[in-house]
Amino acid sequence: MINKTAHIKIRIATQQDANLIALLGRVTFTETFGHLFTDKQVLLDYYDLTFSVDKIEKSIAKANNIYWLAFADRLPVGYAKLKLNSQTEFIKEKSACQLQKIYVLKDFLSMKIGFELQNVLLKKAQEKSFKKIWLSVFVHNERAINFYSKNGFMPIGNHDFQIGKDKYDFIALFKQLA
Rank of each mutant, 00 (worst) to 15 (best):
A61D: 15
L82T: 04
T32L: 12
A70M: 10
H140E: 09
R26Y: 00
F138Q: 03
F108N: 12
E57M: 10
N19T: 07
K165P: 02
K101N: 11
K112V: 01
K92P: 00
Q162K: 15
L121D: 03
N119A: 12
V53E: 10
D107S: 15
Q87Y: 01
L177F: 03
M1D: 06
L99E: 07
F115N: 13
N3C: 05
L105M: 00
I21Y: 06
A172H: 11
L69R: 05
E31D: 11
K4E: 14
V27H: 04
S59A: 13
Q15F: 00
Q176C: 06
A96R: 04
G164E: 11
V27I: 15
Q87G: 07
V120E: 06
S110A: 15
T30S: 12
E127S: 15
A172V: 04
K167W: 07
Y79W: 06
I2W: 04
E93T: 15
F147M: 01
H159W: 02
P76C: 08
G157H: 13
F170L: 15
A22L: 02
N141L: 10
D45F: 05
F115D: 08
W68S: 05
D73F: 05
N3S: 10
T38Q: 14
I8D: 13
D54H: 14
E116D: 14
Y148Q: 05
F51K: 12
Y79H: 11
F51Q: 09
L84W: 02
G152S: 09
M111Q: 14
G78I: 01
G152W: 00
N65E: 02
A178Y: 02
N3E: 09
L105T: 10
S59H: 05
N146R: 13
Q41Y: 02
K112L: 07
K83V: 12
A13V: 14
Q118F: 08
K83P: 03
F90E: 06
L173N: 02
C97K: 10
I163T: 09
S86W: 01
